[in-house]
Simulated scan of single mutants.
Amino acid sequence: MITARSHLRIARPSRDLTRAEAFWVQGLGMSALFRGDSDGTAGTHDLLMVGLADASWHLELTSGGTRPVEPRPTEEDLLVVYLDAPVPDELVARLQEHGGKRVQSPNPYWNTWGVTVEDPDGYRLVLSTRAWSNS
């Protein structure tokens, strides 16, 4: 049964795991939790898992392998991080230095309450100034 403590994995294809790692690890400040290379057998692929060691979630990025999948993000595919503080300019600059591109969101809410940055594969990261509230 799913609980509030259940671990969450967000899996996405990537064109280039080296560029993705630069964005998520050097840019955002996550850790590379696991790396694996395809051995060429059916169903295998290169793999990078990034996140924070003590978090109950992580991001899995896959590339290449015997059946590569091209990323197909839309402008509404968002990963939102609630900072509960202003978004530091140096963080946005670091994300851009590591392959990110600052963009405007089609949803004015995210432009008011955060900063949106596309990762090297076109998926969007929103750094929200708000605090998470489930009410």
Rank of each mutant, 00 (worst) to 15 (best):
L8N: 10
R9N: 11
I10A: 12
R12D: 03
S14A: 15
S14E: 07
S14K: 06
L17G: 01
R19P: 00
E21M: 03
E21Q: 14
A22H: 07
F23Y: 07
V25N: 01
Q26P: 00
G27N: 03
S31C: 10
S31D: 14
A32P: 01
A32C: 05
A32Q: 02
A32Y: 04
A32T: 12
F34Q: 12
G36P: 07
D37E: 15
D37L: 14
G40C: 04
A42M: 13
G43D: 02
G43I: 01
T44C: 01
T44S: 15
T44M: 01
L47R: 10
L47Y: 15
L48A: 05
V50Q: 00
V50D: 02
D54E: 14
S56M: 10
S56P: 09
W57P: 01
T62W: 08
T62G: 04
T62N: 10
S63Q: 15
S63Y: 09
G64M: 08
R67H: 13
P68V: 05
V69T: 13
E70V: 13
E70W: 00
E70M: 09
P71K: 02
R72W: 07
P73H: 03
T74C: 00
D77V: 07
L79Y: 11
L79F: 15
Y82E: 12
Y82F: 15
L83M: 10
D84V: 03
D84R: 11
A85W: 01
V87R: 02
P88Y: 11
D89R: 13
V92G: 04
A93H: 14
R94W: 07
E97N: 13
H98S: 05
G99N: 00
G100W: 04
G100E: 02
G100C: 08
K101R: 14
K101Y: 08
P108W: 02
Y109D: 12
N111H: 07
T112F: 09
T112N: 08
T112R: 13
T112Y: 08
V115G: 06
T116N: 09
E118D: 14
D119K: 06
D119L: 05
P120L: 06
D121E: 06
G122R: 02
L125E: 00
V126F: 03
S128L: 02
T129N: 12
